[in-house]
Design a protein around this nucleic acid. Structure first.
Ligand SMILES: [Mn+2]
Ligand SMILES: [Mn+2]
Ligand SMILES: [Zn+2]
Ligand SMILES: [Zn+2]
Lengths: 142, 142
DNA sequence: TATTTTTTGAAACATTGTTGCAATTAAAAC
DNA sequence: GTTTTAATTGCAACAATGTTTCAAAAAATA
């Protein structure tokens, strides 16, 4: 029995194998950039919006995907590349690049979010580094 | 004739002085933390939602306020403290702190967003530094 | 005060977030 | 392989937010 990559990932997180989860995970596996709920809906066709919403929440809680914060009003998600990511404990500390031109958001593994000393009285749980600009794709095209 | 601070700011940006604009600007002037559209609606009472939306857009374009990116799905705005901020050209490079506890987002002028060299083929227009954690207010309370 | 130009408010529509609940399905037990 | 159990789905329903259009109202200017 030939287990696909997505099935394996779901198994590893002890998540039930369902059509929606496989499809969504396949989409993440086959895309370089972070995907919004809308991106996914378009690719999925007639899938249920609410189920997709819950799938994303489940994946994020499981440590399969993480939010790619890019300063837009749309939530985007990308695959966690670190297998250490566990339920409600992510280890993705890389920057996210958002192209002002094409609107795509990508993980930049080479650039890490800075580690900061908190101002007095504050404590820091996580930092996000968001970069805006033009991606290499759009650079050529302009 | 006694011009209020908000009136002066509007004048300086060559914006028409209207009730909504004065009220909204007054709210920003009297609040330390970044405000969401919802925060403002609550404070304004019976104000028109659409007008508020457009007021915020106008203020941002004028350089009066800037988005306080905090990784939540809600857009928040804060007053630009740098008078250099011009229409569609902001000079706010500070970090934003988001408290996981109370949900408030504040500008951290003391911490600057890092200046990065772009990956090959990319160009950078702006970087945002988002810090999550617990604010001094919530720290004591816990 | 009259004229011009901008802003407002209402309607209308789209997108996204979120819960409750019954029907369906996956995994586990037999 | 069938039955049981437990999780997931799909739908209805609602809230919040984003966004445009257009006529009425208001602000700046003459
Ligand atoms: Mn990422
Ligand atoms: Mn700020
Ligand atoms: Zn691009
Ligand atoms: Zn707090």
């Amino acid at each position: 029995m030939n287990m696909s990559a997505s099935t394996q990932l779901l198994k590893a997180q002890q998540l039930r194998i369902t059509d929606m989860r496989i499809k969504v995970l396949d989409l993440f596996l086959s895309h370089q950039e972070a995907l919004s709920q809308n991106d996914l809906e378009n690719s999925l066709g007639e899938a249920d919006r609410i189920t997709l919403y819950r799938t994303l929440r489940t994946f994020e809680e499981s440590g399969l995907i993480h939010k790619a914060i890019d300063g837009t009003d749309k939530q985007k998600y990308a695959l966690c590349k670190h297998t250490q990511c566990k339920p409600n404990q992510h280890f993705d500390h890389h920057a996210h690049f958002h192209c002002d031109d094409c609107g795509k958001t990508t993980c930049v593994e080479e650039i890490a979010a800075p580690i900061l000393s908190p101002p007095p009285g504050f404590s820091i749980s996580k930092t996000h580094l968001v970069i805006h600009g033009t991606c290499s794709n759009c650079q050529v095209a302009s």
